[in-house]
Amino acid sequence: MEVVITCVETTGAEVRLHDCMAFDQDITTMSVELRANGVEARRGVELLDHDGLARFFERLAADYLGWDGERTWRSYDEEFAVAARFHSRGRVELRWSLADKVNHAWSANITTWIHAGEDMLGLAGGLRALFDAR
């Protein structure tokens, strides 16, 4: 199972989350890929809070009328993160980051845009299914 987040404004910008597996009771592993403008970054990440990312997006979907400021979610080692900001006309900016924090060898960031409401609800549901299937 996988979840692919595409950008409604930039063709080719996407985030792909897949291979979500329970490593043990506390740790879930997942593969993350960021793609934009011919550049691709990928990394396996460990999540201590096995469904925290799904809950983050469920809260965003519940607030479809908007919110002030920026909301963020990060993996415990901060190698994978997403920041969400609500904009006018029901658009949500999602800034994704992926990095090699151990060796400090690289980092990658892309921005995708999604519509609040049904699109965000669909994304939250896809993430819930991804984590529940692990």
Rank of each mutant, 00 (worst) to 15 (best):
F56P: 03
L127E: 05
F80V: 01
M1R: 15
G66D: 01
G122E: 14
D51W: 14
A133P: 01
G52I: 01
D77E: 13
G69T: 02
A116M: 03
L17R: 04
F57G: 10
D51E: 06
R35N: 10
R89G: 07
A133V: 00
S31D: 09
E118D: 07
S31V: 08
S88M: 01
A108R: 15
R42H: 14
V92Y: 01
T10Y: 07
R91G: 02
H18W: 08
A61T: 04
E40I: 09
D24K: 03
M1W: 03
T72C: 11
G38H: 01
G90F: 05
L65G: 14
E46I: 13
T111I: 06
V15D: 02
L65R: 15
L121I: 12
S75F: 06
V4R: 01
A124F: 05
D49F: 08
A13M: 13
F131K: 02
W73Y: 10
R89S: 15
W96M: 05
N103I: 04
R74N: 11
D100E: 08
E2V: 04
G12Q: 09
T111W: 06
T6M: 15
R59I: 14
L34K: 07
L98V: 08
H104A: 06
T29Q: 11
A41T: 03
R71L: 03
V102D: 15
L53M: 08
E46V: 09
G66R: 00
A105D: 10
E9Q: 09
M120R: 03
G38N: 00
D119Q: 09
E93K: 11
R74Y: 15
R85A: 14
E79L: 03
H104K: 04
E46T: 14
D77N: 05
R95A: 05
H18L: 13
T29S: 06
I27F: 15
M30S: 12
S88F: 07
E9P: 10
M21S: 15
R85I: 11
F86N: 11
E78D: 06
T11K: 10
D77S: 07
E40C: 07
